[in-house]
Structures are given as structure tokens and as C-alpha cells.
Design a protein around this nucleic acid. Structure first.
Length: 390
RNA sequence: GGAGGGGUGGCCGAGCGGUCAAUGGCAGCAGACUGUAAAUCUGCCGACGGAAGUCUACGAAAGUUCGAAUCUUUCCCCCUCCA
């Protein structure tokens, strides 16, 4: 069923593992980070720049590409790889997260109880979810079958079953009902996947269950007992980092650990070390590229001005006269050529180069981080690697 | 020389008798951001104070009024048109 895919565990270090995830567009060394290129583009960054930064794999989104330009259109252009000029491994999300984000706003807004904007999620029922297109406002229905068909047209290597990402503020009763519906949707996704399987793609099942241990366990068992290639941990992961690690641990309990395990939407530096220690193989997150566009440059612990943050905010006035690179020991194109002062100026001057330059640094940073994590596992010195980065 | 229009907080620009320390926008200073409706969003932004509050403020001065950025007079400066 997954003949062009394989997950090879090279070595185990307690729960953490070093692996190779083989896809139809090449293998990924794990633990790995997947960069978000939601609308068939990692915002502001070219595939060449991604490659130069040693990026292994990127992600696009079903909902966005379904709304515009449509999956049929991309299929006619030869699929997503060809269309966007990325020949490496690729992942597509199912659109399930948009059931959450278009209904509730950002993860932080929802947890903090802030209402932001108008909901463009109009309806959710057994059949699927109805959205207002972000593109033209028209109503569109995403069902498990449709999500898989769209993902098939797009042609990413790794695809995801359609689920509902349940909000943090849902009560247990709703979370359970939603989880059970997600399970039925995931089963339908898998059935649709199998119907059209041409061996160029492999499917992830998703563990739901909110912050509830019994639900997480049930969901993990559901996913593991169905023939998904891999597993993703989704849904709300709680309101604090500690709770997130607890929830991940709960979800890990019932999982088939011979499969690759992805943690959806997480990408803080310390989160990655904790996740890897819990047995996570891959991560994806908008954070590195989003904070870059907001002036945030990821830095190792030695370069932080505020120990509570994993980045420095180059918009701050103190950087106006800082002639050092973002990180002295970084060999990325941005650090080789630009000072913090110049990047600060570019941000203030609203020059697009700032956004790109900082994103380039953050992408290099994340790839080097993951490489360091792999080295730490291999050389059995993850703790000292962690101290340098966290 | 004649006719008219203006001068508002760092800048632009509303307000045209009380509810005005003065709408907005920009700039400035912070903060947030974790399967991207995000090159976005939020807060602060006269001075002193933690705050309640106090003081100084709408070109300058004098006045009218219980009360003026808003009305009157004079002065200073800018702009447009006619000679």
C-alpha cells in the first residue's frame, strides 16, 4: 500500500529516535522540521533559497489551494511540485485546521479567549465542513473525500486525513463527539485514499482528544489500528507549554511507534527538544517564517536579550546601533552580509528585503537546529546540544 | 496696494461655544504571534504621577461669556487671485 514509502528507525535513544523517512521525492532525515508554504509558497522565500538552507521538506494547504486556484488547475500544471518548483518531499495539510482557525482565529487568541474578526466557517456536520472561501467569499464544502481528492490532485508525498482541530475551550463532551466524528472522517479519508492510491502518496492519521488522557489514548489506538502510513498529533495541545508536553505524552501512549510521528503546528526551539525526547519525528510550524515577517530573528540562548523569548525583535530601537549580525557564529547569507542595524533599518523603512532576509536566517536556523538535534542523538549528547540552543 | 483663504500636539489633518488633553492617519515606543484569513494584530503615545489627579496647551496679545481651539479686536506669519 505504501510501497514507495518507508520509515527507517536508525537508532533509539530512550523514546527519541533518529530515522529516515523515505518518500517518492527522496528521504528525510528525522527528526525534521517542515516549513509552511501554505499557498504553494513559503512566504517570501524561493525554493532555491530553501534548498540553500538545506531544507528537507515543505508543506502546503488543501483549504487555501482548493479556494484558489483550485486543485484541478494545479493538477493540469503538472502537480504542486512542478507548479511551485520544489522537487523535494512535500506534505499537504487536509484543511482540518481551518475548521478551527477560520472559526476561532489564531491558537493564542482562542486560548486567551480573544475573539478576532468574523468567522468564515459556516457549518460543520457529519458530512464535512462548509467554509466561506478566503478568496472570493463563495461557500465551499470540504469533506473527507474532497480533501483527499484535492490532496491527490496536488500530489504531495505525505498527505493528511481530514479532521476537526478542536479548540481548547471545547468541553470534554464536545471534544469527545468531535474526536469520534474525526475518526469517522479519517476512516473515510483513508477509504478514499485507498480507492485512488497510485503509490505516490502516503497518508497520516491524526490523533485528537483535546487535553483528556482517556480520549487521547482512544484516539491513538484508533489511528494505530488503521492502515495509515504515519501518525500526526493534532487538536488543542493545552494552554501552557507544560500542558502541551503532557498532552503529547498522553497521545504517544497508544501509538504504533514503528510509524513516523508528526506533531502538528509546533515549532518552538524548546518544544522541539521536548517533542523529540517524547518520540516525535517531525514538526511543522508557521512560527519561524511568521515571526520573521514581524521582525523576529531566532537566536540561540547566548544571543537572547530576553530569556523568556527564543528570538530577538529586530524592530526594537536598541538594534538601530547594533552592527553585529543576528548571530555572530551563523553562516547564513543574512548573517554573512547584513547587520542587525541594517535589518532594523529595513524593517522601519518597510523594505521587503527585511522580511525575506530574516526569514532566510530563521530557515537556516531551524535546519541547523534539527541537524544539531540529530547530531545530539547520534553522539548521545542531546543535553549539551539543548543547552546551546534553548 | 486690493480681494480672499489659512495658522491645531513630532508631521499631516478633523473639530468651529460646553460632553476637548482635543477624531483620524503617519511617525515613535512596546507587546503578541506554534497543522498561516497574518509583510498581521494589540496597547501606549503633552508634562508630572503607580493611580486618582494636577498643571501647561489649538500663531501672539487683549476681550466677550458662568464657560473659548471654536466668537470679537489688534498684531505676527503663510498661501491664492487681482493690480
Amino acid at each position: 500500500m505504501y510501497r514507495n514509502f518507508k520509515f527507517e528507525v536508525i537508532s533509539c535513544h530512550e523514546k527519541a529516535r533518529l530515522g529516515l523517512l523515505h518518500t517518492s521525492h527522496g528521504a528525510i532525515k528525522t527528526p525534521a522540521f517542515i516549513f509552511c508554504g501554505t499557498k504553494a509558497s513559503v512566504k517570501g522565500i524561493s525554493p532555491q533559497q530553501l534548498k540553500e538552507a538545506k531544507t528537507q521538506i515543505i508543506l502546503s494547504n488543501t483549504y487555501h489551494l482548493f479556494s484558489y486556484p483550485g486543485s484541478e488547475y494545479i493538477k493540469q500544471r503538472g502537480g504542486l511540485h512542478k507548479f511551485m518548483g520544489w522537487d523535494g518531499p512535500m506534505f499537504t495539510d487536509s484543511g482540518g485546521f481551518q475548521i478551527f482557525s477560520l472559526g476561532h482565529g489564531s491558537v493564542a487568541d482562542e486560548i486567551k479567549g480573544r475573539r478576532s474578526g468574523i468567522s468564515t466557517l459556516t457549518k460543520i456536520n457529519e458530512n464535512g465542513a462548509t467554509f466561506k472561501s478566503y478568496w472570493d467569499g463563495s461557500e465551499q464544502l470540504l469533506t473527507p473525500e474532497k480533501s483527499v481528492q484535492v490532496q491527490r490532485d496536488l500530489g504531495a508525498d505525505l498527505i493528511v486525513a481530514f479532521d476537526e482541530c478542536t479548540p481548547y475551550h471545547s468541553d470534554k463532551k464536545y471534544t469527545e463527539k468531535s474526536m469520534e466524528r474525526s475518526h469517522r472522517w479519517e476512516k473515510r479519508s483513508l477509504d478514499e485514499f485507498i480507492r485512488g492510491n497510485d503509490y505516490s502518496q502516503a497518508m497520516y492519521g491524526i490523533v485528537q482528544g483535546g487535553v483528556h488522557e482517556d480520549l487521547r489514548k482512544r484516539s491513538a489506538e484508533f489511528v494505530s489500528s488503521n492502515p495509515f502510513f504515519a501518525t500526526a498529533i493534532g487538536g488543542t495541545l493545552g494552554a501552557t507549554k507544560e500542558q502541551m508536553y503532557e498532552v503529547v505524552e498522553m497521545a504517544m501512549k497508544g501509538l504504533d511507534i514503528s510509524r513516523p510521528i508528526h506533531l502538528l503546528g509546533i515549532g518552538g526551539i524548546s518544544d522541539i527538544f521536548r517533542g523529540v525526547a517524547l518520540g516525535i519525528d517531525t514538526f511543522d510550524c508557521v512560527h519561524p517564517t511568521r515571526i520573521a515577517r514581524h521582525g523576529g530573528a531566532l537566536v540561540k540562548s547566548a544571543y537572547r536579550d530576553d530569556k523568556r523569548r527564543e528570538h530577538i525583535n529586530l524592530k526594537r530601537s536598541e538594534y538601530a546601533s547594533d552592527d553585529n549580525p543576528i548571530e555572530m557564529d551563523c553562516d547564513c547569507p543574512t548573517c554573512r552580509n547584513f547587520s542587525r542595524a541594517y535589518l532594523h533599518y529595513l524593517l522601519k523603512a518597510k523594505e521587503l528585503l527585511a522580511l525575506q532576509a530574516i526569514a532566510v536566517h530563521n530557515i537556516h536556523f531551524m535546519n541547523k537546529l534539527m541537524s544539531a538535534v540529530r547530531y545530539g542523538l547520534e553522539a548521545n549528547c542531546l543535553e549539551s546540544v539543548k543547552n546551546e540552543w534553548c
